[in-house]
Write a protein that binds this DNA or RNA. Structure first.
Lengths: 185, 185
DNA sequence: CTTATAAAAGGACAATTGTCCCAACTAAAA
DNA sequence: TTTTAGTTGGGACAATTGTCCTTTTATAAG
């Protein structure tokens, strides 16, 4: 549910020392929006600490949460490769510390630091490998089965996240979430 | 619906000439299974021509189709980065020609050919950027809206694919697909 | 030509999930 | 303190989707 990548963060911390002018440490408070959908950015972020949610908003105002991102997760990097606009919103759901790096410097690291290059490949591959089974399971199983699965990996998920966020993560309505949680007691 | 990556294929064709011992051209007939879920492989593939489906099977025998893959799409590459078992099945749904390359030679190209490296990055990023909105839309909208959307990008999708495949792509039952197609006439 | 087997289509009913409400509670703002 | 907005919880009903079954047609195999 909360994605992390400690190996990547560890290497970023090394790079921060090595390239003092590449990274800027920023801090955001709960509920602050860090990236907006359909905008053009020139930097991307790596999470040092805290949790964000990555979600897509549609024209009807519905949000769908892709991932909760924790330490070592990067976001905004896809736009470096695609050249397109950002396709999701990123919002802090706790106090968050981030390393910010420009597309330019990121590209330079990719080209000149093979360790970094490999770690980024891994992080992209991991995002795909995570999304595929999740999509499959969410689509094929009932709400009840999905919640049972959530509970197994995050026994107290309903304490960390708001009900609305959990519903948006599962792609269901708040009403359905409540009903199912009731049936499970 | 059918993912393609002509740029990648074009460069692969160049590499095929350059590294004569790296790539093996293989051919598969409709319905042949090329990769199986949860197995350990030492090679991966790039599609030269034809279409495959990439799907996850669950313990109840349900299949969920992740993507239909056309020319220039690679599969089996995630295992190079993760070191894990394959997590989906790949099956030909037309006659298919593939370039097969070992993990070892693939890694060597990644390390020594920066053009190739960049193209692989792009292909990984594109997979993520495709999956995210699809998951979001499928989860948040009705079957009817999903089928209308399909029809827009693939007006004759019901001629190319079997009804069962379309249902498995949308994560719905065959019955629901038929019913909705009827209502739409 | 027969016989399996798979694909397509849809009826009838049950289960799941969403929509539209209203009410209680909390926390922050005036 | 009062007010406002956000979060939680759930009743009642409607709409959507799935399950189970049967029939027909097409396709491949013997």
């Amino acid at each position: 549910m909360i994605r992390i990548n400690p190996n990547f963060l560890a290497y970023i911390e090394i790079l921060v020392q090595k390239h003092l002018d590449y990274f800027i440490l920023e801090e955001y408070a709960t509920r602050e929006v860090i990236l907006k959908q359909n905008k053009h950015y020139h930097s991307l972020y790596i999470i040092k600490s805290g949790i964000t949610k990555c979600y897509l908003s549609d024209e009807n105002g519905k949000d769908f949460i892709q991932e909760f991102l924790g330490e070592g997760m990067e976001f905004g990097e896809l736009e470096v490769f695609s050249g397109n606009l950002s396709f999701c919103n990123i919002e802090a759901i706790s106090n968050v510390k981030l390393y910010k790096i420009s597309h330019k410097n990121y590209t330079s690291l990719l080209e000149n630091d093979s360790v970094f290059n490999k770690l980024v490949m891994k992080s992209l591959a991991a995002k795909i490998a995570y999304k595929a089974p999740r999509h499959s399971f969410q689509q094929s199983y009932s709400i009840e089965e999905n919640i049972i699965k959530l509970k197994k990996s995050y026994p107290n998920f309903d304490k960390i996240f708001s009900k609305k966020d959990i519903a948006n993560y599962l792609g269901i309505t708040l009403r359905s979430l409540n009903r199912t949680l009731n049936n499970l007691n």
